Deep mutational scan, measured.
Amino acid sequence: TGEEYIAVGDFTAQQVGDLTFKKGEILLAIEKKPDGWWIAKDAKGNEGLVPRTYLEPYS
């Protein structure tokens, strides 16, 4: 299990392996990579890379 984050903006996948999401979606951070791209999972179970700058902790 990971930590929940809320998307603060829309993001469209730029390449294969990225995860597209919309502002307000809750994402589960699976792995926090030091380069600023995290592996996350959305509510539908889709998994991919997301930019850290689009996420804020969800409580």
Score class of each variant (00 low, 15 high):
29 A>I: 15
34 P>I: 10
5 Y>K: 00
10 D>R: 03
46 N>F: 08
6 I>E: 04
2 G>S: 11
28 L>F: 12
39 I>F: 11
22 K>R: 12
32 K>G: 04
48 G>N: 00
56 E>H: 10
19 L>M: 06
57 P>H: 08
13 A>H: 04
42 D>L: 02
45 G>F: 03
49 L>A: 09
52 R>L: 13
23 K>S: 07
40 A>W: 03
33 K>M: 10
52 R>C: 15
15 Q>K: 15
32 K>N: 04
42 D>V: 02
45 G>H: 04
13 A>R: 07
7 A>G: 04
19 L>F: 02
55 L>K: 01
8 V>N: 10
52 R>Q: 15
50 V>H: 01
36 G>K: 04
55 L>A: 00
37 W>C: 09
50 V>Q: 00
47 E>H: 10
5 Y>W: 11
16 V>F: 11
50 V>T: 03
24 G>W: 05
43 A>D: 09
40 A>K: 00
15 Q>F: 10
4 E>C: 14
5 Y>S: 01
3 E>F: 11
23 K>A: 09
42 D>N: 13
36 G>Q: 05
8 V>H: 05
35 D>N: 12
31 E>H: 13
46 N>R: 09
58 Y>L: 11
10 D>T: 07
51 P>T: 03
33 K>N: 12
12 T>E: 11
33 K>W: 08
24 G>S: 04
13 A>W: 04
55 L>P: 01
30 I>K: 05
44 K>I: 09
18 D>E: 15
47 E>D: 06
48 G>D: 02
11 F>I: 04
26 I>H: 06
20 T>W: 04
38 W>A: 02
45 G>N: 06
57 P>E: 09
35 D>V: 02
13 A>G: 12
4 E>A: 14
50 V>D: 02
43 A>W: 10
7 A>Y: 02
20 T>F: 04
18 D>A: 13
34 P>R: 09
54 Y>E: 08
1 T>C: 12
26 I>F: 05
27 L>I: 08
27 L>K: 00
49 L>M: 11
14 Q>R: 15
15 Q>I: 09
31 E>A: 11
44 K>R: 12
59 S>H: 14
53 T>V: 13
27 L>D: 00
27 L>M: 07
10 D>A: 07
46 N>S: 08
18 D>Q: 15
4 E>M: 15
36 G>V: 03
56 E>D: 07
49 L>F: 14
2 G>T: 11
56 E>Y: 09
9 G>I: 14
52 R>N: 14
11 F>M: 04
33 K>Y: 10
1 T>F: 13
6 I>Q: 06
24 G>L: 02
23 K>E: 07
33 K>F: 12
58 Y>D: 04
30 I>M: 09
27 L>N: 00
32 K>I: 08
27 L>R: 00
55 L>T: 01
